[in-house]
Design a protein around this nucleic acid. Sequence first.
DNA 1: CGTGTAAGGAATTCTGACACG
DNA 2: CGTGTAAGGAATTCTGACACG
Lengths: 106, 106
Amino acid sequence: MPLTDGSFKHKKVISIGTVSELTGLTERQIRYYESRKLIFPERSKTGLRKFSFQDIETLIEIANRLEDGVWTNEIRKELKGREQFIAEAKLSNHLINGKINAQLKL
Amino acid sequence: MPLTDGSFKHKKVISIGTVSELTGLTERQIRYYESRKLIFPERSKTGLRKFSFQDIETLIEIANRLEDGVWTNEIRKELKGREQFIAEAKLSNHLINGKINAQLKL
DNA sequence: CGTGTAAGGAATTCTGACACG
DNA sequence: CGTGTAAGGAATTCTGACACG
């Protein structure tokens, strides 16, 4: 039942310069957030960082939280919390779908 | 009624090296197809090509057609035909939705 | 026609460090 | 803590051309 493609959103293909333009953040900031384990870009064979659209969305959230005076340590927890929530929601959704299908067969 | 995001699919953010990896085509081939007006990457301020996921899908189609022995001239027409079809389908879809909504109000 | 390649230059990205605080 | 910057090097990309055909 997935409606959106999503494969595009999570594919790591965007280089740091483009991410910088899209987010308004400096490359320095982006690299720093990676070192703080807030984002996890992939690397090309030669070591160049590759980001996804999802990473860009996360970076914008990070920038907003930092403006609120929140530390990267705290932001990391928040992001993990969100991830956990999504994972649970997906599982729950999956289970419910199973029950619905079971009922439909009766 | 758009279900898929789509904004990601059409955003021009991928550099030619990554496109080459994703499609299996050489940079030479990709640049040539652009010169033949089969794809239309954007350019960064300094002139670097930027492609979208849609461009990548088109490139794969192009490669398939070329393998079939079709010339770029012909492929260009095919692609235009497809575009035209999609545009018409969207319009038609829009009109039908309008009629349905009109009926629902009766 | 479609593609390979060598050529020279320009733009991008990387890391580690010094700085401020 | 989070960010700016100068430094030197490595990897990427660009264009125009010669080549084959």
